[in-house]
Amino acid sequence: TLEEDLKKLQLSEFFDIFEKEKVDKEALALCTDRDLQEIGIPLGPRKKILNYFSTRKNS
């Protein structure tokens, strides 16, 4: 689940933002850096999230 993935990244504090915006794993895989910025995710966590999901998509 998205919540489990965020826990792996030690970013579970952002789960509420994704839940509020109705972003699940499938939607997050389609998000850009700009999308994450617009919903209030800071730069460092955005980079970690985007890297994590891009490596999952390619495997």
Rank of each mutant, 00 (worst) to 15 (best):
I41H: 05
I17V: 13
F15E: 10
S12E: 11
T32S: 10
R34H: 12
E3N: 04
P42A: 02
R56H: 07
L11Q: 00
T1G: 13
T1C: 07
E26S: 13
A27K: 15
C31Y: 15
P42I: 00
P45S: 10
S59A: 06
K7S: 09
E21C: 14
K57N: 05
L43Y: 15
L43V: 15
L6Y: 01
K25M: 12
E3P: 01
T32W: 00
L6R: 00
L30N: 15
V23S: 04
L36E: 04
P42K: 01
E13C: 11
P45K: 05
I49F: 01
G40V: 01
D35R: 12
L2S: 00
E26V: 07
Q37H: 06
S12N: 08
K22R: 07
E3R: 06
D24P: 02
E13G: 02
S59R: 04
A27H: 14
T32F: 00
S12Y: 08
A27V: 12
Q10K: 06
E26Q: 09
T1W: 00
G40Q: 07
R46C: 07
C31Q: 08
R34L: 11
L43R: 15
K25E: 14
F18K: 09
D16W: 10
A27D: 15
D33R: 02
E19Q: 12
Q10F: 03
L50E: 06
G44D: 14
G44H: 13
T1D: 11
F18D: 03
R34I: 08
E4Y: 01
F53L: 05
K47F: 01
I49G: 02
D33N: 04
G44S: 13
T55Y: 08
F15I: 02
P45H: 06
L36Y: 01
R56T: 12
L11I: 06
L43E: 15
K25H: 13
I41F: 00
T55F: 03
R56W: 09
D35S: 10
R56D: 12
R56C: 10
E38H: 05
A27M: 15
I39N: 06
E19G: 04
V23W: 15
L50Q: 04
Q10R: 06
G40L: 00
K48Y: 02
F53P: 08
L28T: 04
K7N: 08
D35N: 10
I49Q: 05
R56G: 09
L11S: 00
E19Y: 06
L6D: 12
E19I: 11
D35M: 14
D24T: 15
E4M: 08
D33E: 10
L11C: 03
A29R: 11
E19A: 06
S54N: 08
T55A: 12
F14I: 04
P42H: 00
K47C: 13
S12R: 06
R34Y: 14
R34S: 12
F53Y: 10
I41A: 03
K25L: 11
D35E: 14
S54P: 05
L43D: 15
E19H: 11
K57S: 08
N51P: 04
L2V: 04
Q10M: 09
E4W: 01
R46D: 06
P42R: 00
F15W: 05
L6A: 00
D24Q: 10
D24W: 00
F14K: 03
K20A: 12
K48W: 00
Y52M: 07
R56S: 10
E3S: 07
L28C: 05
F15P: 02
Q37D: 13
R46S: 10
Y52V: 06
A29V: 03
L30P: 07
I41K: 08
P42D: 06
E38S: 04
R34N: 14
K47A: 14
T32N: 07
D35I: 00
I41T: 10
E13H: 14
L30F: 10
Q37Y: 06
S54M: 13
D24G: 14
E21N: 14
P42Y: 01
N58Y: 09
L36A: 05
D35V: 01
N51C: 05
D5S: 11
E38W: 01
K57Y: 06
S12L: 09
Q10W: 00
A29G: 07
G44F: 08
F18N: 07
G44Q: 14
V23Y: 15
K20C: 02
Q37G: 12
K22Q: 06
D35G: 07
A29M: 08
S12Q: 13
L6M: 07
S12I: 11
E26K: 15
C31H: 10
L6G: 01
S59W: 09
E13Q: 07
K20N: 08
Y52Q: 13
T55R: 11
D24K: 08
R46Y: 00
D35K: 14
E3H: 04
D35Q: 14
L43N: 14
E38V: 10
F14E: 02
L36N: 06
A27W: 15
D24M: 05
G40Y: 00
R46T: 06
A27N: 14
E38N: 05
L11H: 01
E26Y: 04
D33V: 01
G40C: 02
L11R: 00
R56F: 09
T1F: 01
F53V: 04
L30W: 14
K48V: 14
T55V: 08
L43A: 15
V23I: 14
L36C: 04
T55I: 13
A29S: 13
L50H: 09
K25I: 10
D33P: 01
N51G: 12
E4G: 03
L28D: 07
T32P: 02
G40D: 02
D33A: 09
R34D: 13
F15D: 03
R46P: 01
S12H: 12
E26R: 13
S59L: 03
I49N: 02
T1R: 05
L28Y: 01
T32D: 08
S59Y: 09
I39M: 15
T1L: 03
F18I: 08
D33M: 13
K48E: 12
A27I: 10
A27C: 15
L2Q: 01
S54K: 09
R56V: 12
P45D: 11
F18C: 04
P45E: 14
G40N: 06
Y52D: 09
